[in-house]
């Protein structure tokens, strides 16, 4: 078998190459080829991800070893130029509430929760309730979850919309959208609406800054948005913008 176009799409060969990449046996040149493909082939990237996850059990073989203190100082110096000053953050890193979040678990399995939650809610919440002309709404929440999902059912067109709503045990939270640019403190693009489909109208002055590669992030903030103008809560999602 040789590397013709046909072979390039052979899933078994792809699985092997993805595995070889993660094992680390490839040459430098082959590693660059694999990485170039990773950037544009999502299916192949998923194979690599899967090997990384599968083989990560072997990481137990690596002994943890304290690096010398000078290493962190060197890293800090290197990232200093791209970092906004500490004052830009109210830095709730060690806040008791956020530290004990089960947020990630809830988000990691959000899709699962939606599926399971909906099945449950549809039968227990939606079905028994008489339809009174209004929209049917279900709050989907999990134990210890800091994010809830609100499902709105539009009978007229059969659309069931599921919107994430930040929620805490103590009080309601809001989801705030941020623009993260290199070397600058994140700038708020607005608070995601608690109702509706999560549309945010970007302030006119900000529009020129939303360009390819700009990073958008969503954090959980006190109800109504961050009181300080900087992100104070955990980031629940982020990603760089790209052309479709």
């Amino acid at each position: 078998m040789t590397a013709s176009d046909k072979d390039m799409r052979d899933p078994r060969r792809d699985e092997v190459i993805a595995g070889e990449y993660v094992l680390g046996v490839l040459s430098a040149e082959d590693r660059r080829k694999v990485e170039a493909r990773l950037a544009q082939d999502r299916q192949f990237a998923a194979m690599v991800n899967r090997w990384e996850e599968n083989l990560s059990t072997f990481n137990d073989d690596y002994e943890a070893l304290q690096p010398p203190p000078r290493t962190y100082s060197a890293i800090e110096q290197r990232i200093l130029g791209t970092a906004p000053p500490d004052a830009a953050f109210s830095g709730k890193v060690s806040g008791g509430f956020w530290n004990s979040l089960a947020l990630w678990r809830s988000l990691a399995f959000a899709s699962l929760a939606v599926a399971a939650g909906l099945a449950f809610s549809m039968s227990s919440l939606l079905a028994p309730r008489p339809v009174s002309g209004g929209r049917l709404v279900a709050d989907l929440s999990g134990e210890n979850a800091t994010i809830n999902l609100v499902a709105r059912y539009d009978e007229a067109n059969g659309a069931l919309r599921v919107t994430p709503v930040a929620a805490g045990k103590e009080k309601e939270k809001s989801l705030e959208l941020w623009l993260v640019e290199d070397g600058k403190a994140p700038v708020s693009l607005g608070v995601l609406p608690q109702t509706g489909e999560g549309e945010v109208v970007v302030p006119a002055v900000m529009r020129g800054r939303i360009v390819q590669g700009a990073v958008l992030a969503v954090s959980i903030e006190p109800f109504g948005g961050s009181p300080t103008g900087s992100a104070t809560g955990p980031v629940i999602a982020s990603g760089a913008t790209r052309f479709d």
């Binding site: 943890a64 070893l65 304290q66 962190y72 953050f89 954090s219 980031v235």
Partner: peptide, 24 residues
Amino acid sequence: GRVSLKDRKAFAALYETSAPKLFG
């Protein structure tokens, strides 16, 4: 997640937690 917002305190905490393993 916090580090993606360029939170340096979170970065320091992440380093403290993970650096020994990564150094290994």
